[in-house]
Design a protein around this nucleic acid. Structure first.
Lengths: 142, 142
DNA sequence: TCTTGACATAAAGTGCACTTTAGGCTATAA
DNA sequence: TTATAGCCTAAAGTGCACTTTATGTCAAGA
């Protein structure tokens, strides 16, 4: 499973990122420098994909690129940054909890709206039905 | 509770939106036109705040401004759009479920990372401690 | 009466995270 | 050998959702 390598296209498929996004992450220093072939093409390893998975996780939970870069840099710097890293992860975990809380509340509000609209629809349909019946009776009476 | 009115500042405080954002929503047609005083100032009602709460809910769950505008316009158009509105809410509800799912998975990944880093820290500390002890012994032996 | 503060508009600017474009290199297949 | 596909870079462009700026009106208190 180790020492297998991937082209940028394969990595894009694996990570659901676009090719330009992967390149962008590397030039921005969010993704650590990727190995190159003799002709200058990127040669990705499972480790690189691991970094990208981490980046996706942090981005997907709303962490800005700059902060992710900071975290990755700390990882590369080694042992001395372990406390900073743990602190950042814990703080970020808290914001994710908040996001989950907010999202859950909004979800409930949307469900409420849906039910409200459904009841509204029932009444509209009932009214329309009543009008139809009256019209039919008017037709007969003419 | 009804027929009370609010200034834009009060509404901003109530909704946690900024004053320019509220104006922006109105000029964009996301928020239906707000009543004005003789001097042209906006006079908000509880109904307006209700619209803003809805907008916050939809924005907070990732619906783009354009789509929210569409939904609000449908609401203003009346009964004939009830099916469209219900469909949009249901579809949006699904995307919120997906967001919750993704976010929950990411949260778990972050927790996993935290634990991984904590164990890493334990090892680093243990190693440092060992080095310290050895250094002290070396000191004694000199 | 004058100043202060809250409101108004229109238009330009901002920040973020990419995406697109233009131009060029290189290895394989026809 | 030539064309095609896949990679490369640097730089400019994009889309979204606001935010900021410049300028002006209006009502109330000193």
């Amino acid at each position: 499973m180790e020492n297998k390598t991937y082209t940028i296209k394969e990595v894009a498929e694996k990570t659901n990122l676009t090719i330009p996004t992967i390149r962008y992450y590397e030039t921005e220093g969010v993704l650590p420098p990727v190995e190159r072939s003799d002709s200058g093409n990127r040669v990705f390893t499972d480790s690189d994909i691991g970094w990208l998975d981490l980046i996706c996780c942090l981005r997907g939970t709303g962490m800005p690129i700059k902060k992710i870069k900071q975290f990755v840099q700390w990882c590369l710097e080694g042992d001395d940054t372990i406390d900073d890293r743990i602190e950042m992860l814990i703080e970020h975990g808290k914001t994710v909890d908040e996001q989950l809380q907010v999202l859950t509340n909004y979800k409930a509000a949307i469900e409420w709206k849906i039910n409200y609209h459904r009841e509204m629809k029932m009444q509209i349909d009932a009214r329309r039905n009543a009008v139809r019946i009256i019209e039919q009776q008017d037709l007969k009476n003419d």
